[in-house]
């Protein structure tokens, strides 16, 4: 995973798999504090403590003998954060959704680039059109905000994001924010 935007997509797909109706993503780049913070929160089914340990500790999930470690992505992201002088925190409880927060030193030589943010938003809100996706990107005080629910509203009642018009609307909404 050579882009933070790909890690974000991975976290958001976990949220969709957990039955989330809403995924809230925030990226904050604070160059003065040398920090990049990513927060992904969902209202999905959440995880109990044991499950949470298993997904955050990659080796733990390998020990359980599962052929495919679940949510390997979280372990990868934690590793990336730690290699960049930061850390990852995950809060989750059954019925309470999941919140992942990761920070890293913005100027760290190992920090992956943010990457193609808009491609991640596009794939997410069109691949899971039933999930409201909110993305806020704050870079040195400049805020970019995208909300798939607003695009839905603009399309009118009964319209689907997953239609030629819907795809066009999402694409244009993202292009207008460049």
């Amino acid at each position: 995973m050579d882009e933070i935007a790909l890690h974000i997509l991975d976290l958001a797909v976990n949220a969709v798999s957990a039955g989330a109706r809403r995924v809230t993503i925030a990226v904050t780049e604070d160059l003065a504090q040398d920090r990049l913070v990513v927060r992904v929160a969902d209202d999905g089914k959440g995880m109990d403590a044991q499950h949470l340990d298993a997904v955050v500790e990659r080796f733990a999930s390998e020990k359980t003998g599962r052929r495919r470690p679940i949510a390997l992505g979280l372990a990868l992201l934690r590793q990336t954060a730690e290699q960049c002088g930061g850390e990852m925190r995950v809060e989750s409880a059954p019925g309470q959704g999941t919140q992942v927060e990761v920070w890293m030193r913005h100027g760290h030589i190992n920090r992956p680039p943010l990457g193609r943010r808009d491609e991640t938003i596009f794939a997410l809100c069109l691949g899971a059109p039933g999930v409201a996706v909110e993305f806020t990107h704050c870079r040195n005080g400049t805020v970019t905000h995208f909300d798939s629910a607003a695009v839905c509203q603009q399309l009118g009642p009964g319209a689907s994001l997953q239609s030629p018009e819907g795809i066009r609307a999402v694409r244009e909404a993202l292009e207008s924010k460049r």
């Binding site: 995973m1 790909l6 997509l9 991975d10 797909v13 949510a71 390997l72 992505g73 990868l76 193609r116 491609e119 991640t120 596009f122 794939a123 069109l126 691949g127 997953q162 239609s163 030629p164 795809i167 066009r168 694409r171």
Partner: peptide, 24 residues
Amino acid sequence: ISMGTSGIAAGARDVMRAIMDEIE
């Protein structure tokens, strides 16, 4: 579209984009 960690790492996001672009 398979969008687990390995799918994403292998390029699933661009595959999704191509499908959506064609639908549009």
